[in-house]
Design a binder for these strands. Structure first.
Length: 773
DNA sequence: CAGTGAGCGAGCTTCCGCTTGACTT
C-alpha cells in the first residue's frame, strides 16, 4: 500500500520517477497549472490590494478530482513541480486546491531525473517558498491587467476581437518596425571586383581573389581596369594563422527551433510537435527548456559514444553556462536520453529532428576543430588597391565530424575546406580575367518564425513554453502573415577585363526572393502605431526586462508584490483612461484620390471586418459605398484605379441555361455564382477579366456535392446523411453525431430518436465572422 | 484537413505560462 503521493507536472516524468521510488510511492501529474484567474473577466480585485480570484478551469476538473482521491490514500504528499517561479506557484496552488495540511506536505525539487537526484530530493524536503510564489502571482496579475485592459481599448478604437499583451504586442512591433526599416532602406550600389590569376610559378594553377575596395562609380572601375592592363601583379604577403572552431552549446527550445528552421525549414510549431512526440516516447529529454546544462550522466554517455565512434582524441568534455536573460533553468538542455542510439524508429521528421539533437549533443563533448587560415595579398603596380585571396584548411576536424556549422540567412553551409594553391611572397601572377559587378547593399533581413523567437529570447521576452504559441497567436489575429515573395529582376552593370580588352554589359539579376518570412498586415501596423502612441512603456522593448527585475526582488523577499503592482497600475490605469476617452479611432485611413464619376473621395481604411475601400464620406447625404480590400493588396499599396475596379462587382457575365452567372469577391476570395451554388476562382484566373466560357468551365468542373441521403424516416423529418466527417443524423434543423459502432443499414427510426434525445443541448457558439482558420 | 460566400445588431471578443489530449457538422 502506497503511503506517499508525489505530484510532478508531466505524466512522462511521473512514469520515470515512479520506477525510481519503489512501491511506497505513487507518482501523479498535475498537467501544469491547475488553477488560474477566471477566463471571462479581470478576476483581480483592484480595490482590494489586487487580490486575484482563482478558479480551477474546466479542463482541469478531472485532474484535480483524481488528485483529491489520491491524497486521501496517502500519508505524505510530495510536491515535486519544477524549481522555478511557475513550478513553485504550481506547488502552492496544489496545496491550496487540494487543501493539503502543512504537516503532511513536503516540497521537493530536482533538476535531473536520475535515481540519485530523486533520492537526494526526497531526503531534503523544504517548505513552499512564498516569496517565489508571490513573484509568480505578480507576473500573472500584471499580464492579466495589461492584456485585459488594453484589448478592450483596441475593440473600441480599432476593431473588435483584437488583442494586446506584454509579449505578443512586442513581437508584432518587431515585425512592423523591421518592415518600416526595409521600406526606408536605400541600397548603396558599388562595383565589387574579382579576378582570376594564373600562377606563373606552377603549371595550370589559378587563384581567385577579391579586390579590397569597392568602387563608387563606373568611371572609377574603368580607370582601375585601364591601369590593370599594363600592371604587374606581385604576391606581397602570404599570411597563415591557426584558428579553431568550438562546438555550439547543447540545444534549448529556441536554438532547436532555429536549427530545425535553418536546416529543415520546419515552422516552430512543427519542431515542437515532433519534439513532444520524441519526449513522450522517452527518446529525448524535456523539450521546453532554456538551460544548456548537461548532466554528468549525459556527458559520460556522450564521451563513451565518441570514443567508440572516433577515438579518444576526439573527446573534449565541457559544461556550458546559460547566459540568456531571465532563464530559469528548471530542466536540462534538450538531448537524447540514450546517446548510444544514433537514430530511432519513427517518421521522417522524427528521425531528422532526433538525429539533429543527437549530433548537436555529441558535438558539445568533442574536440575543437583546428584550422589554418591563409590570406594572400596581391599588389597591383601603380595602384593603392590590392587583391586578396583567402583560404582555409581543416587540420583536425574535431566536432565537425558530426555537426556542421550553419549560418543564418544563408541556406548553404559554410565550406570550410577551401584550399589555396602553393604560393610564395614575391611570386609574379598573370591576370587572366577580372570582373567588376554592380552590387546592391542588402536591407536588414526580414524575420522568419525562428529568428523572431531568437530576437524575443534575446530581449528576455516570453518563455520556452510560449514561443511557438505566441507566433501562432499573432498570425491568428492577422497581425502578421507568413509569406513567400518571388524574385524580382533588375539590371546590373558588369565590366570585364579579359585579354587586354575592357567590355561593359548590363545583365539581369534576381533579387528580393523571400521564403516563409513574416510580414505585417494593415491591422498589425495600425495596432502597433496605436499602442506606441498610447501605451509607449508597455510595448517598449525593455519593458519585460524591467519588470523581471522587480519580480526578482519580490522572489528574494525584498519587495511586496502588492506594492509592486500598485506602483505599476496607477500610471498604467491613467493611460488606459486617457486612451479610452481621448484617442482618435485608428483606421489607418489613406486618401487614394477622387472618384471621377461621383467626384467623391476614395479612401482605403480598416473597417469592422478588416481592410476596405470607401467612396464618399459618412456625413454626406448619400451614404458611402464600401468594398473589401483584395487579399493581395494593402492600405499602403492599393492604387485608385485598383480600388475603383472593386466597385464593378458583382460582375454579371451572362447565363448558363436559364440561371445567371456572376462573379464577385467574397470572404474567401473571388468566386463564381451560378444560381445558388458558388465556385472559387483559382489564383490563375483574374476575376476582373474572366469570361463567361471560363466561368462555366469552373462551374462544370466542380464536383457536385449533393448531400447523399443514406436513410430517411418520417417523411424526411429525420434523415441520415453522409457528411464531411462521416454519416450523421439531421432532424429539425440540427445535426447529431452517430456513435461509431452503429451500422447504418440496420439503423431504425427509434434508434435515431434515441440518439437525438440523448444528445446534450448544444450552445450556439458563434465565431467572429472574419476569423478564418 | 474540410466546409463556407455577413452587412440587422446584442453580446462577445482579450493576457502569459504550466501541461496534455481534445474528437467537430
Amino acid at each position: 500500500m502506497a503511503k506517499n503521493l508525489v505530484i510532478v507536472e508531466s505524466p512522462s516524468k511521473a512514469k520515470t520517477i515512479e520506477r525510481f521510488l519503489g512501491k511506497d510511492f505513487v507518482v501523479k501529474a498535475s498537467m501544469g497549472h491547475i488553477r488560474d484567474l477566471h477566463k471571462n473577466d479581470l478576476s483581480i480585485d483592484l480595490d482590494n490590494n489586487f487580490e486575484p480570484q482563482y478558479e480551477i478551469p474546466k479542463d482541469k476538473h478531472k485532474v484535480v478530482e483524481e488528485l483529491k482521491k489520491d491524497v486521501l490514500k496517502a500519508d505524505v504528499i510530495w510536491l515535486a513541480s519544477d524549481e522555478d517561479r511557475e513550478g513553485e506557484a504550481i506547488a502552492w496552488h496544489l496545496k491550496e486546491a487540494l487543501r493539503l495540511k502543512s504537516e503532511t506536505t513536503k516540497r521537493i525539487v530536482f533538476n535531473e531525473i536520475t535515481r540519485q537526484a530523486i533520492i537526494n530530493a526526497v531526503g531534503n524536503p523544504r517548505d513552499i517558498d512564498e516569496n517565489l510564489v508571490n513573484a509568480q502571482q505578480a507576473r500573472r496579475v500584471l499580464d492579466r491587467i495589461v492584456g485585459y485592459q488594453i484589448s478592450p481599448v483596441l475593440w473600441k478604437k480599432v476593431k473588435p476581437a483584437l488583442s494586446a499583451g506584454r509579449v505578443q504586442s512586442v513581437a508584432v512591433r518587431l515585425i512592423v518596425e523591421r518592415e518600416e526599416e526595409i521600406k526606408q532602406f536605400i541600397p548603396k550600389v558599388t562595383y565589387k571586383t574579382t579576378a582570376i590569376f594564373d600562377i606563373l610559378a606552377s603549371e595550370k594553377q589559378t587563384l581567385s581573389a577579391v579586390l579590397n575596395r569597392s568602387f563608387e562609380s563606373k568611371d572609377e572601375a574603368l580607370a582601375f581596369f585601364e591601369a590593370c592592363k599594363g600592371a604587374i601583379f606581385t604576391v606581397k604577403a602570404v599570411e597563415t594563422k591557426p584558428a579553431k572552431l568550438s562546438p555550439a552549446p547543447p540545444f534549448t527550445t529556441s536554438t532547436l527551433q532555429q536549427e530545425a528552421s535553418r536546416k529543415f525549414g520546419f515552422p516552430v510549431s512543427k519542431t515542437m510537435q515532433v519534439a513532444q512526440k520524441l519526449y513522450e516516447e522517452g527518446k529525448i529529454t524535456y523539450m521546453r527548456t532554456d538551460s544548456v546544462n548537461l548532466s554528468s550522466f549525459a556527458i559520460g554517455m556522450a564521451k563513451n559514444e565518441i570514443i567508440a565512434l572516433y577515438g579518444e582524441n576526439y573527446v573534449n568534455t565541457r559544461n556550458y553556462k546559460t547566459n540568456t536573460k531571465g532563464a530559469q533553468e528548471a530542466h536540462e538542455s534538450i538531448r537524447p536520453t540514450h546517446m548510444e542510439n544514433r537514430t530511432i524508429e519513427g517518421d521522417a521528421s522524427e528521425k531528422r529532428l532526433y538525429e539533429l539533437i543527437w549530433k548537436r549533443t555529441l558535438a558539445t563533448q568533442m574536440a575543437d576543430a583546428l584550422l589554418e587560415r591563409t590570406t594572400i595579398n596581391i599588389e597591383v603596380s601603380g595602384r593603392q588597391e590590392a587583391f586578396v585571396a583567402k583560404g582555409e584548411v581543416v587540420l583536425f576536424d574535431g566536432y565537425l565530424k558530426v555537426y556542421s556549422v550553419s549560418v543564418d540567412s544563408e541556406d548553404e553551409e559554410e565550406d570550410l575546406d577551401a584550399r589555396l594553391p602553393k604560393i610564395a611572397q614575391g611570386d609574379k601572377l598573370l591576370l587572366l580575367s577580372s570582373k567588376a559587378q554592380q552590387t546592391y547593399s542588402l536591407h536588414p533581413a526580414r524575420y522568419n518564425e525562428a529568428t523572431l523567437v531568437k530576437k524575443l529570447e534575446d530581449l528576455g521576452i516570453g518563455r520556452p513554453s510560449t514561443y511557438a504559441p505566441t507566433i501562432t497567436t499573432i498570425q491568428k489575429r492577422e497581425y502578421i502573415v507568413k509569406e513567400d515573395r518571388p524574385a524580382q529582376k533588375r539590371e546590373v552593370n558588369v565590366i570585364t577585363l579579359s585579354k587586354g580588352e575592357i567590355k561593359s554589359a548590363d545583365i539581369k539579376e534576381n533579387y528580393g526572393t523571400e521564403k516563409a518570412k513574416l510580414f505585417p498586415t494593415d491591422i498589425g501596423v495600425i495596432v502597433t502605431n496605436f499602442l506606441v502612441a498610447n501605451f509607449k512603456d508597455i510595448v517598449d522593448y525593455n519593458f519585460t526586462a524591467k519588470v523581471e527585475k522587480e519580480f526578482d526582488s519580490v522572489a528574494q523577499g525584498k519587495k511586496d508584490w502588492h506594492k509592486m503592482i500598485a506602483s505599476f497600475y496607477t500610471p498604467f490605469n491613467k493611460e488606459v483612461t486617457v486612451a479610452t476617452k481621448e484617442a482618435e479611432k485608428a483606421t489607418g485611413e489613406r486618401l487614394l484620390g477622387i472618384d471621377p464619376e461621383s467626384k467623391k473621395s476614395v479612401y482605403a481604411r480598416i473597417g469592422r471586418y478588416g481592410a476596405m475601400i470607401q467612396i464618399g464620406d459618412k456625413d454626406q447625404e448619400e451614404k458611402p459605398r464600401f468594398a473589401s480590400m483584395p487579399k493581395d493588396r494593402r492600405i499602403d499599396d492599393i492604387t485608385l484605379a485598383e480600388a475603383l475596379k472593386l466597385f464593378d462587382m458583382p460582375r454579371i457575365l451572362g447565363k448558363k441555361d436559364t440561371e445567371e452567372v456572376s462573379v464577385n469577391i467574397g470572404r474567401f476570395g473571388p468566386y463564381v455564382k451560378y444560381g445558388k451554388s458558388f465556385v472559387s476562382i483559382p489564383k490563375t484566373d483574374d476575376v476582373y477579366t474572366i469570361t463567361l466560357a471560363r466561368a462555366i468551365e469552373l462551374i462544370d468542373s466542380k464536383p457536385s456535392k449533393e448531400k447523399q441521403v443514406l436513410k430517411s424516416f418520417d417523411n424526411d423529418k429525420i434523415q441520415v446523411l453522409s457528411g464531411m466527417y462521416g454519416p450523421y443524423i439531421k432532424s429539425g434543423g440540427a445535426n447529431y453525431r452517430l456513435p461509431k459502432e452503429i451500422v447504418i443499414e440496420q439503423l431504425t427510426m427509434e434508434q435515431c430518436q434515441e440518439i437525438i434525445n440523448k444528445s446534450p443541448k448544444k450552445k450556439t457558439t458563434r465565431k467572429p465572422v472574419s476569423a478564418k482558420k
